[in-house]
Computed example of a mutant assay.
Amino acid sequence: MPVCDHCGSHVSERFARVFADKNGQVLACPNCSANAGIAEVARQRARTA
């Protein structure tokens, strides 16, 4: 069961397929970022990690 690596919330398999990075990490989800900015937030968090 995939989870957001930032906040720990459950995400669907489909969400993880779309938004996970090449290592399978989901760095942002609707619970911890705005829906419109999930991809951008994930990129920013990946750069600072």
Rank of each mutant, 00 (worst) to 15 (best):
D21L: 03
R17W: 00
I38C: 08
R43G: 00
E13A: 14
P2Y: 04
M1L: 11
K22V: 13
A36G: 11
A46H: 08
D5E: 15
S12T: 15
R47C: 02
A46K: 14
D21I: 07
A36Y: 02
T48W: 01
A20I: 06
E40L: 12
D21M: 06
Q44M: 13
V3Y: 09
N23D: 15
N23F: 05
C32K: 06
R47P: 00
C32N: 11
A34W: 07
K22P: 00
P2A: 07
A46L: 14
R14E: 15
G37Y: 04
F19H: 15
C32A: 11
V18Q: 09
S9E: 13
A36T: 08
D5F: 09
E40F: 05
E40H: 02
G24I: 10
F15E: 10
R17F: 00
I38G: 04
V11A: 08
D5A: 15
F19I: 11
V26A: 00
C4E: 10
A49R: 13
R43C: 00
L27I: 05
K22N: 08
H6R: 13
C7T: 12
A42F: 03
N23P: 01
A36R: 06
R47G: 05
I38E: 03
N31E: 12
Q25W: 03
V18C: 03
V41P: 01
D21P: 00
A28G: 13
G24R: 07
R14P: 00
S33C: 13
T48L: 10
